[in-house]
Design a binder for these strands. Structure first.
Lengths: 295, 295
DNA sequence: TTAAATCAAAAACATTCGCTTTTAAGATAT
DNA sequence: ATATCTTAAAAGCGAATGTTTTTGATTTAA
């Protein structure tokens, strides 16, 4: 036999237990004394248990009542938490998040998914651009929060991780052996100056195989083994691999992945999104964690 | 505005989410398809949120639905736990507990109180007697569980603690200096032979000041500083103290406090009572724990 | 002790809620 | 396209729940 308790009644029950009187509780609950008395009576009938000691003024809990009180409190709390989560204004809104296009994959889709599961009524507007453009947008207030890839960090930023830039090519490809080394780069790519400098210092001849604004074009070119590219470790797309060049190509400088917009207190929503981002980039960026996750 | 969820509806909601269909869930719930549909509709109206994705065959949860599911599950579990605790036959009954009268205080009242709070619908019949009588009762099956004070332990027993027997007298009293040493003992007291033997070995002259069946009489006699008594350390009654005799009286043998009746599997009730007893006598019996509790 | 006051339970009544039955509509598979 | 499965909507009915009013019991004050 299934017996379901009624949250309304449980709320009354808790109020009576806490106030020590039906009438007092009724006032607080905006109900009649009669209504509350009947609720308690029904509750006792449903469970076939004496919940109150009605001798003397007021009303006192029996041991059974104490037990129920424990559950009633928790159920009311759960109820209110659920209702708040699903209806409260505080849990709806819009956040604009800017992310450099080369680190969108694979962390960001996962973050967006997690965040949407936690706050379904919040729209996250994802802006994917270059670090420089994103910082400008953020400065104008057009983005609530941005990620950047840079070697330094500004005062108001938070470093999520530091990872080496690394050489990327087609799986099993040999484009990296060619001289001049053929490079594929986006027109506004922040990494290009660093890469060029490293190649020049190592006295490796190079040329641009393609210069475009399209990530797809770069990926296609590299995937066809016509050129090499550089990306931050851990952000390699599915069909490209890190090149195991054994020292034939120069080491590239470390890059920071920084977060701006988390410091200024913007409420639970922003905090939560920032937290998801932190976790995602710790995982992507750290070999230690990656190994643990695989075990 | 207070919105209370309905456990019946939440149960249906969970069933629908888990079965992936209103009709299937309705069958399982012994309800009409219509009833369940209306419940879901009311739920969505109450929260003003879309819980389901109704495109295509069956029904799938939205992100909001997933969130609610999380709470709904927990609320249903709490509900069922509460109902079980308060109505299930398994949580009512009677247990007969036998305790030697000299170790009833102070542990047993506390244990009975705790146990009654945890299982209000179980009557605990407390039998207070001598260890020998209790073991006889237990052997006849008249007691479900007994504590004993003895130097050894039987095969089917469980040792709760080992504590020295110690000399007890009136606070600040001097009865323990008198020779012959005046003793107050119950007629069936298990400790007497051990005490007498220890005194004889130490060549201390003694006599019985009182021999009675009444604990009150003994307490009164000792409290009036007319005699001394022995008790297990940690079970001294309020108005009697341990005697600091500085070696003038012989050391007395250690006593075990044993529990019988816990080994045979008798269900959660007995297990729980046994556990309370174990904890109570660890606390009473161990100085280490007593110090920790005081800090 | 009596009278007033406070508080909980009971009776009568009205409203709302929630379930079943029935009917209609939409989607899928053969 | 038809048959089948599934959900949605409408109508009817009974039960549940809350309000008002009354009764009874216990406490407080005179």
């Amino acid at each position: 036999m299934l017996r379901n308790l009624d949250v309304t009644t449980l709320r009354s029950f808790v109020a009576v237990a806490e106030s020590g009187g039906v009438t007092r509780a009724a006032g607080f609950l905006h109900l009649t004394q009669s209504a509350v008395s009947m609720q308690l009576k029904r509750l006792e009938e449903l469970l076939d248990v004496k919940l109150f000691d009605r001798s003397g003024r007021g009303i006192a809990l029996t041991a059974e009542g104490e037990q129920l009180l424990f559950y009633a409190r928790r159920m009311v709390v759960l109820n209110d938490e659920a209702v708040t989560r699903l209806t409260d204004q505080a849990f709806e809104g819009e956040i604009t998040l800017g992310v450099p296009h080369d680190i969108v994959y694979p962390a960001i889709p996962m973050v967006l998914k997690q965040f949407h599961a936690a706050f379904p009524r919040v729209k996250v507007q994802l802006i994917s651009s270059y670090t420089r453009a994103l910082k400008a947008e953020f400065g104008r207030g057009a983005c609530d929060m941005i990620l950047t890839t840079e070697t330094g960090i500004d005062d108001n930023g938070e470093e999520l991780c530091v990872r080496p830039l690394c050489w990327i090519g087609a799986p099993g490809g040999s484009a990296w052996r060619q001289r001049p080394l053929r490079l594929a780069f986006g027109r506004h790519c922040t990494f290009r100056p660093h890469v060029v400098e490293a190649l020049d210092q190592a006295r490796i001849d190079w040329e641009l195989a393609v210069e475009t604004d399209s990530d797809r074009t770069i990926e296609a070119t590299v995937s066809a083994d016509l050129a090499v590219h550089t990306m931050i470790e851990g952000t390699e797309p599915p069909h490209l691999d890190r090149i195991d060049h054994g020292g034939a190509l120069p080491e590239l400088p470390f890059q920071r992945i920084n977060l701006y917009g988390a410091a200024t207190l913007r409420g639970e929503l922003h905090d939560s999104l920032a937290e998801y981002l932190r976790r995602a980039f710790v995982r992507v960026g750290s070999n230690k964690v990656r190994v643990l996750a695989a075990s």
